[in-house]
């Protein structure tokens, strides 16, 4: 019991760091993902092709490697490294934006052309059509895949330990090797589980709220 009390404080601090990574990633990756989705859907090849290449790299290589590159590459280029935490956020944001963009693209492209046509003949401008008619329907459709990605993100924050960000899993591993005990790791597992339980609950709630139409 004493042991648990001793490790709880650093573990909760680690959890706070993990949550910061989680929320900051969502905060920046969602808008960036929208921009990327539009870039990908652009009819201009000089926009859509590079965007696709970026997405392919982000989705085709390990996030672990991307974290290392974002953190260590500046050392070889400008001779110094930058803040670990900021580097982690950058890596997470550019990685998750690539995935979010695909979800947004799928959502937008799943809306029937007739919705755009109906809006157009009623005199809606392009932006009004998008925000009043298209977006609400897209949000409903993308909730399940977004729930997937969000829950993955909760667990992926553990990867930030590779560049020595003191997030939950790093704290747990340290405590575990110091005390020759697996208990800190199990506690960490439980915390991730509780966080994702809450994430899932939020998505269920959102889906229920949008259940009034089909």
């Amino acid at each position: 019991m004493d042991f648990l009390q001793k490790i709880m404080k650093p573990m909760l601090e680690g959890t706070a760091v993990s949550l910061e990574i989680f929320f900051l990633t969502l905060l920046f990756a969602i808008p960036l993902g929208m921009i990327v989705a539009f870039g990908r859907m652009s009819k201009n090849k000089f926009i859509s092709k590079p965007v696709r290449a970026y997405q392919l790299i982000m989705r085709g290589t390990p996030l672990l490697l991307q974290l290392m590159i974002v953190f260590y590459a500046p050392y070889y280029i400008v001779g110094r490294t930058f803040d670990r935490f900021a580097s982690a956020i950058i890596a997470f944001v550019i990685n998750y934006a690539a995935y979010f963009a695909e979800i947004f693209r799928a959502g937008i492209e799943s809306i029937p052309q007739g919705q755009y046509e109906a809006a157009k003949v009623l005199g809606y401008s392009k932006s009004k059509t998008f925000f009043r008619i298209i977006v609400p329907q897209v949000v409903k459709r993308i909730l399940p895949p977004m729930g997937n990605e969000t829950m993955t993100l909760v667990k992926d924050t553990a990867l930030a330990q590779t560049i020595a960000v003191m997030e939950l899993f790093r704290v747990a591993t340290n405590a575990s090797s110091r005390a020759f005990s697996t208990i800190p790791l199990l506690v960490a597992g439980l915390i991730y589980f509780i966080l994702n339980y809450l994430v899932e609950k939020c998505y269920i709630k959102a889906e229920k709220k949008l259940d009034y139409y089909k």
């Binding site: 919705q115 003949v121 005199g123 009004k128 009043r132």
Partner: peptide, 27 residues
């Protein structure tokens, strides 16, 4: 000009009333 489509193309997220009032209010 108004157009009525073969497949209606109503806005599914709006109630019947809102389908009819949204354009007059917005446009």
């Amino acid at each position: 000009t108004g157009l009525v489509f073969q497949n209606f193309h109503l806005f599914p997220h709006y109630s019947v009333l809102k389908n009819i009032t949204d354009a007059p209010m917005q446009i």
